[in-house]
């Protein structure tokens, strides 16, 4: 029985492709069996609760201290607020683990500053130009960065690059709005991806992403 089940699944998939309306429960079962195999690679990368609580506690304490100039009487509000914030970080669903590379951070900050200045000057020139040179439209870009902080950072940074704005995410594709669709989207976003891989100490993607 156990040994024949792959064959049965295969047969049901073929039946499904011929007459899809007849047996909707069979393909559901076969796709349900795939889910654990997809989920396991993500599991080891998750962060543990207690270190996350302590890190949140430390970061929030420093922010509170800096905001109030380390005044002792402000701690009446500060201690409950910091404890509450760190507990929320502890109770929220755990995100994906990530780490920053100190060597990638400075080049990224510099590159990002230059790009956001270019982006702002570009959009300001278009706004002030009497004929307003715009050719807006949407383009797609395939996401290859891992889930979590690298991907969130990538999607937020798209908005600050010249002429691009992340409009929607559909699965592993980001839909980018462009002010001028005559400009090629891929080189700019490939650059950004390379920078973010360096920032998060991720291996570089050797094959060019479509």
């Amino acid at each position: 029985m156990r040994a024949t089940s792959p064959m049965r699944l295969h047969a049901s998939a073929r039946v499904h492709s011929i007459s899809s309306a007849d047996s909707p429960d069979l393909p559901l079962r076969s796709s349900g069996q795939k889910v654990p195999a997809l989920r396991t690679p993500a599991a080891p990368g998750r962060r543990r609760g207690l270190p996350r609580f302590l890190v949140s506690l430390l970061v929030l304490s420093v922010i509170w201290g800096a905001l109030t100039d380390w005044r002792a009487d402000a701690l009446v509000f500060g201690v409950p607020a910091v404890l509450l914030g760190a507990s929320v970080a502890f109770l929220l669903p755990q995100g994906y683990a990530w780490r920053l590379s100190p060597r990638g951070a400075a080049p990224f900050a510099l590159w990002f500053a230059v790009q956001s200045v270019r982006g702002a000057i570009d959009v300001a020139m278009r706004a002030f130009a009497p004929r307003m040179p715009l050719r807006p439209g949407f383009r797609h870009y395939d996401l290859t960065l891992p889930m979590g902080a690298p991907r969130v950072m990538f999607i937020n940074a798209i908005t600050l690059l010249p002429g691009t704005l992340s409009a929607e995410i559909e699965g592993h594709t980001v839909i980018v709005h462009m002010l001028d669709t005559r400009i090629d989207l891929d080189p700019a976003l490939d650059d950004l991806e390379t920078q973010i891989r360096a920032l998060f100490a991720l291996p570089q993607n050797t094959e060019a992403s479509a």
């Binding site: 956001s116 982006g119 702002a120 570009d122 959009v123 704005l165």
Partner: peptide, 9 residues
Amino acid sequence: HALTKADGL
């Protein structure tokens, strides 16, 4: 585009 980029800088 105008709001995020120009106001951001």
